[in-house]
Design a protein around this nucleic acid. Structure first.
Lengths: 384, 384
DNA sequence: TTGAAAGCGCTAACAC
DNA sequence: GTGTTAGCGCTTTCAA
């Protein structure tokens, strides 16, 4: 392949003129432009500025240009300036692929989220999380490659991406207790960091949010508002996240000296209908509970439906809290526990960056605090 | 850098044994393993199977291996099989970066969505859309690079990605009337396809959903249910998408011989509060409208709030329809217009693939049909 | 039908 | 401080 210099030489113009001509700049008269274009054609040259063009333009070697690009302190200021000017004049941008080949890296981070067949198990916070993730990654010179992963695909998509050198590392979310991806990535020695903790047997960097604390915030808020008979709707025992939230409720109640009869707790599948039934079971207690804490926003929504079907008012007759602070919580004025999405993304990227530099910090398991967003659903308690 | 063959020679074992030893296979006795590892160490070799290792293992040249990888018909079946075995035995995977450098492509597609400061303008369907996008791209051997783009960033992020050879093309969504990204990409001759139409002056491939038709579906459904006095809540005129939906309503009413007084139409900003006020304005008409069509789900939610505050029942006293079929619509039983997300993603990727092969089909502007998801909010009409 | 070798654009050891 | 040059792993022309 010919270079820009070859074209310039053949057309008997400066490299600058050749470049200007090829980009069709108005500064160059049309006759010269035509001559240069003819020269380029005859050499079968297509405009594509490389490090060699910059070197030729600046009258230095490619090494020098490379050093300038990479901010090496070796280069004399005058030379550096000359190269910088060349880079500017030719609008040069280093080719990432070539760099990556040389460095054997991609500066790409793989991320997949779960798409369940169950439509209710969607990912309402994906837009926020992914945006933050991408932003943090970009701040470190990386980009996010989003790929697909069905429920049954296991480690396959990860394998492929690693084997074809598509990514340097991964961010995982929706981590399960015995997540096969974690074992696999550890074995393959591929850097990764997760949002969510696993079983504790593996040692790997993760960020988690204190789910116990989240529920405690909700319970304590209700107690402060004067509630004492507080029910709980949560997932049936066995699910890590559900167990943690249930425990948070039990702990908070105990700490406040409230004895919880079994009938204040109702387990529910993750649908409005089941949650509505769960609310019904709780509210048949006498005396009737005045508040219900829910393990997520969907369940809270179901509970709300049931309460309103009784002709009672949410926030006044029965207080309600959710979890996750999904858009629906804002919409229906539901007090909900918010996870610090931006902070999670930041920290998990930080952890991954450390992994990729093969320097795992001592504190590579990070626990973040949730916060309670108070809305109308728990605002005004009319003491019965 | 030494090759696997060098290591095998130094340890006086076969390449197969050398490979097995280095991956720590149980089949190789520990003494041999140690010897091979020592040889690798002394050569400063790190296991990394390249096309040259495969060639050496199969006793052919790299050219032959390359041909096999790329399914060239030139290779004799026996040779092909030998190479295939070598690839299998060494678990070889071609390095994508090297291929990309050679081919001057990345097999990456850039995609960014809008993240507005306004939290209500979130992207509740991103999880679906992005998943479908990634899936279709992967079927073509491409991956999605998600990057960030604030409201004010204009074409900058696109520029950077192009200049650094990060992507081969783009998918755009949230396209505005005079979207600067479109002009820029056309000028730079970078392949792209959009979800959403622009002003019509530019010629580029896009997929759009017939918004007029969507509203018509809603109106016709309501009329079929016996409604005649049907109001509309939409964005104030001037927004492309809003204007289309408003027009859909006007057309459908006209086609059904219903004259629409101005007071049946209320414009609203995209919040529940404004939509509630809009609903109020509509419902002060006498005789009172029995149904309200909304330009999106958020507005429908606001309208629902107002209707219920009147002690009226949605679906029985006042029918309501939304648009977008966001998760909230399902949750509250809102009849809503659904865009065919999977089909959109499929078609837009198809269009982009064609662009990247520099072969734009004649039908490169595609209009897809929405569908109406009927739920309780328009289910039972009690004729006044 | 297969192989030798040039080269994609870049980095960095080594030489001067 | 700067230049020469050998690769990174792959594809592909040209030759045999």
């Amino acid at each position: 392949m010919a270079t820009l210099k070859d074209v310039a030489d053949r057309a008997s113009v400066s490299m600058s003129t050749a470049y200007q001509s090829l980009i069709g700049a108005a500064e160059v008269d049309s006759q010269t432009q035509a001559a240069v274009k003819a020269a380029a054609d005859s050499l079968n040259y297509e405009l594509n500025i490389t490090i060699r063009d910059v070197a030729a333009y600046a009258g230095v070697s490619v090494t020098t240009v490379s050093y300038v690009i990479n901010n090496s302190p070796l280069i004399k200021p005058a030379t550096r300036q000359r190269v910088r000017n060349a880079i500017r004049d030719l609008d040069y941008h280093p080719n990432t692929t070539a760099r990556n080949l040389k460095a054997n890296e991609t500066r790409m981070i793989g991320y997949a989220w779960h798409v369940a067949e169950d439509p209710i198990r969607r990912n309402p916070l994906l837009d926020l999380f992914l945006f933050e993730l991408a932003q943090c990654a970009e701040a470190h010179g990386y980009h996010i490659l989003t790929f697909t992963q069905s429920n049954r695909s296991g480690t396959k998509p990860y394998e492929t991406l690693i084997n074809t050198n598509r990514v340097d590392g991964f961010i995982l979310s929706d981590v399960t207790y015995e997540d096969p991806r974690i074992g696999y990535l550890i074995e393959r020695k591929v850097p990764f960091a997760t949002y969510g903790k696993a079983n504790g047997k593996w040692d790997f960097p993760y960020v988690d949010v204190d789910g116990k604390r989240g529920i405690q915030l909700a319970v304590e808020h209700l107690i402060a508002r004067g509630h004492e008979r507080i029910g709980l709707i949560s997932w049936p025992p066995g699910l890590r996240i559900g167990d943690i939230r249930t425990q948070g409720y039990l702990d908070a109640m105990k700490q406040n000296g409230i004895t919880v009869p079994e009938s204040w707790i109702a387990y529910s599948a993750n649908t409005m209908e089941h949650a509505a039934e769960a609310a019904q079971r709780i509210l048949t207690n006498r005396p009737k509970p005045t508040a219900i804490v829910c393990a997520n926003d969907i369940m809270a929504f179901g509970a709300k439906r049931y309460v309103e079907s009784l002709g009672l008012e949410i926030g006044t007759d029965v207080a309600l809290t959710g979890y996750d602070d999904t858009p629906v919580a804002e919409l229906i004025g539901l007090t909900s526990v918010r996870q610090p999405i931006a902070a999670i993304a930041n920290r998990v990227i930080d952890l991954l960056m450390a992994e990729m530099n093969r320097q795992r910090p001592a504190d590579h398991t990070i626990m973040l605090e949730p916060s309670l967003i108070i809305r109308e659903s728990s605002a005004n308690f009319r003491r019965g």
